[in-house]
Design a binder for these strands. Structure first.
Lengths: 211, 211
DNA sequence: CATATTGGTTAATATTCGCTAACTTTTGTA
DNA sequence: TACAAAAGTTAGCGAATATTAACCAATATG
């Protein structure tokens, strides 16, 4: 279902979170019910409420869980990177890693809950997107100051373009109901993203962007 | 609500379709109920079933209605365009027009119903995406043959990239809950899409014999 | 004018959902 | 070992949902 051996070892509460996310990702919010979650666990729906007070609490856990991992991955990426371009690359690679790990849950949840009228969810998600956008656009700004990123681009729009491109990949996978990873070749994907925004380096052109 | 004067003149059946689409786009599938639709029309929920046998039939109407417009827009674009690049540009411009007209309904419906387990919906949507993808990738192929599009790019992936980029814009608008158009500057948007894929034109009189 | 159709109502049905209560089993630990 | 807490069960409540039936008013059409 989600992993197999590893999954079985998890405490029920964690299993519920993962199954719930899986249901929302693969079947949509309408199928996110106590009964559906419980049946995948071989339990009755009532047992769910021994672990979560309400169904909304499950959603909150999913959001916090995944949003947290995604935010963390950005910090890790920045600390790992040697220069601006490398930092950006690391942030994106980490992001893609979480993305694959969670099967695209974050963008899908953002999309679904942005349309729910539940203020609690949308607030968390909006501040996540905002924060993440700031992180990226800060890197873009620094890159522009150092002359490696084109100066005529708006950092904020660039950040949304990056987030949007990732969402686009998730979208494509869901539409095509593909089985493999969301982004097949992360390095190539990042190169394509960078292609339009990086200032051309005249010297030492070692272009590895062939497909 | 949707337009005002014009809207009032529509037959109830058409009103139901538009309101239903609006609800799904703005509030998600979970809020798509007979009662919600009816209340916006000042009717009771039972009246809905005088116009549609089942709720699924409403969804089918929405999908067919919007998908048809989207497909048509592609044909119009191709017939309008003078050369490959122009055809592509026209197709995208037409697509964006429908997109704005329907407030992003098509990509959202594709996304939502791809995750519904209703085979009827997904079949229609998948064949739409497939067809639309073919239309675009055919244009890309021709463009590659004529040497105006980079030859190392896979036409099918390119097509999905285009569709994905549009979806990303819809995504961005929903996340940011913006009020204006989904794509503020269509020409600029298309230029950005083209930037990475078009063969650089050094000058008009290149050694290319296809000119 | 007569009347059949259209489009609306209220009331009811079966089903599903979130959630609780009461009870039982499992399990960690004093 | 004793026993309280944790984690399950069944049964059921109240609300919401899709859909239908029975009824009624307007309206198009013969």
């Amino acid at each position: 279902m989600i992993n197999g051996e590893e999954f079985e070892k998890l405490p029920t509460k964690e299993k519920i979170i993962r199954i719930a996310a899986d249901i929302i990702v693969k079947e949509g919010l309408k199928k996110f019910t106590a009964k559906n979650i419980a049946s995948r666990l071989g339990m009755t729906d009532a047992a769910i409420f021994k672990h979560f007070a309400t169904m909304d609490d499950i959603i909150l856990s999913i959001i916090n869980n995944y949003v947290y991992r995604c935010s963390q991955s950005a910090e890790v990426g920045i600390s790992k990177g040697k220069d601006i371009e490398d930092k950006l690359r690391q942030v994106l690679l980490s992001h893609i890693k979480v993305l694959e790990d969670t099967k695209g849950a974050v963008p899908i949840l953002c999309f679904d809950f942005s349309r729910s009228n539940n203020q609690k969810f949308t607030n968390i998600l909006h501040s996540f997107v905002k924060e993440y956008k700031n992180t990226l656009s800060q890197l873009f700004k620094e890159g522009q100051e150092k002359g490696i990123i084109k100066k005529d681009l708006d950092p904020e729009e660039l950040a949304m373009f990056f987030l949007g491109s990732i969402q686009a990949k998730v979208f494509a996978k869901i539409i095509e109901q593909g089985e493999g990873p969301i982004i097949k070749n992360p390095d190539q994907f990042i190169n394509e993203l960078f292609y339009g925004i990086m200032e051309k380096k005249e010297d030492q052109t070692s272009k590895d962007e062939n497909s």
